[in-house]
Design a protein around this nucleic acid. Structure first.
Lengths: 230, 230
DNA sequence: ACCTGAACACCGTTCAAGT
DNA sequence: ACCTGAACACCGTTCAAGT
């Protein structure tokens, strides 16, 4: 009982945007997008909901800051000096994995293209195309296609996560969708029928990467350049 | 003044899911995603907000039905019998244009992969890959990549529309983003700097199609098949 | 069977009042 | 300068009561 007085909860530091964003990320990660409210955030920070507005303009601002944090961490964690094609794949996978862990980032990225996180992603892909032999006039379209692929998958993964929050089993959930697809008229949906069986067992990450490789293949086919020997 | 009595508002027909969805689409198209509330919808239909729940499970159900309507119309309007590559491009452009007119469809598609609209889109792309010479094992990944591209662009366009709702000029808005990009550190963001100038003047539709062509190029490069003479 | 509309629970955001 | 927390305006959804 006579131990040195333990610091109570953590009301020592003053409130700051940093601490608010940190707490928001914790709520988003553990309880999902729906759980982030100013009331919940205020409770966790042991303050009033209005206090948060002193450091943060509004909820969009808060979510943007949280998203930037996660993306900046991905960019910082990237290995340097890889060959362009490998660097592009590593960046894509890094983003995929980050969004897999923080599905709410997917929602944000696909809802707000003016986010500060977007130019970071653009730069990450675009600056490596030079090394792939893509001429300057073609770099904008090629980069945009890679970025759109990442954002597109991000949005879908976030949607899946939103749904899986209410359910236990992922395979069972995909199985239900597969069953719905299998119940469509086979005459009108022959392809969907064939693919339905692959749905529950397919690996999102591998399919994402297959898409990146398809796009890279298209880029290289359109611009046969020096690095053809990947 | 003595003209035949005009039908008052339109309270003749009983309420139905069809009429509710129709009214919802009108609100979404004219006043944007934020304007669709059960109160606004009830007012337009001259009924109580609770009445809507007799025909529609909840707001998600309503939005799903509205989205399916728009997508089904795109599928129905497609020309028959085109060669596979042209058919795929036409489908992609049809979806792009529909989402351009109804940006809220973009939000829905990128938020809800279990929508009934999704297998329609899957079928539209997937069933044409056979004719491109893509072997069966590769069709799932290739289709998914095309669908993701459509959904990814859909989400971004919807986000842009949400922002442009509060503003008048599109070019001015893109100009502001371009300016933000141009203000980033040129040493760390050389590519973003180069691309910023192209941002305000670039054509979203053309860039979308360039992405589709890049993906198709990658598909054909991976599976050099019978239809190489496109 | 279908509709009405008040009531409920819950948001984001504001703001007068405190320190 | 920064924090508190009640109050405001507005949601989606429910439900007892009507026809």
């Amino acid at each position: 009982m006579a131990i040195k007085k333990q610091r109570a909860v953590r009301r020592t530091d003053a409130l700051s945007k940093e601490r608010i964003v940190e707490a928001a990320i914790e709520i988003l990660d553990t309880d999902g997008e729906g759980a982030l409210t100013f009331r919940a955030l205020a409770a966790r920070l042991a303050t009033g909901s209005g206090a948060i507005y002193w450091h943060v303009a509004n909820k969009d601002d808060l979510l943007a800051a949280a998203t930037n944090d996660v993306i900046a961490r991905v960019m910082a964690g990237l290995a340097q000096g890889a060959r362009p094609r490998e660097a592009i794949r590593a960046l894509a996978l890094g983003l995929f994995d980050a969004i897999d862990v923080h599905p709410w980032v997917g929602t944000q990225l696909s809802r707000a293209p003016w986010l500060a996180a977007i130019p970071q992603i653009f730069e990450g892909f675009g600056s490596r195309l030079e090394g792939l032999g893509v001429p300057e006039e073609a770099q904008f379209d090629a980069t945009s296609t890679l970025v759109i692929h990442v954002l597109g998958v991000a949005g879908q993964n976030a949607a899946n996560a939103r749904l899986l929050a209410h359910r236990t089993d992922r395979t069972a959930f995909l199985g239900e969708i597969a069953q719905q697809w299998a119940q469509l008229d086979p005459a009108r949906y022959p392809f969907v029928h064939r693919v339905a069986a692959q749905l529950p067992e397919h690996d999102d990450r591998e399919q994402f990467l297959a898409g990146i490789d398809l796009i890279l293949g298209g880029i290289e086919a359109a611009h046969p350049g020096p690095s053809a020997r990947t």
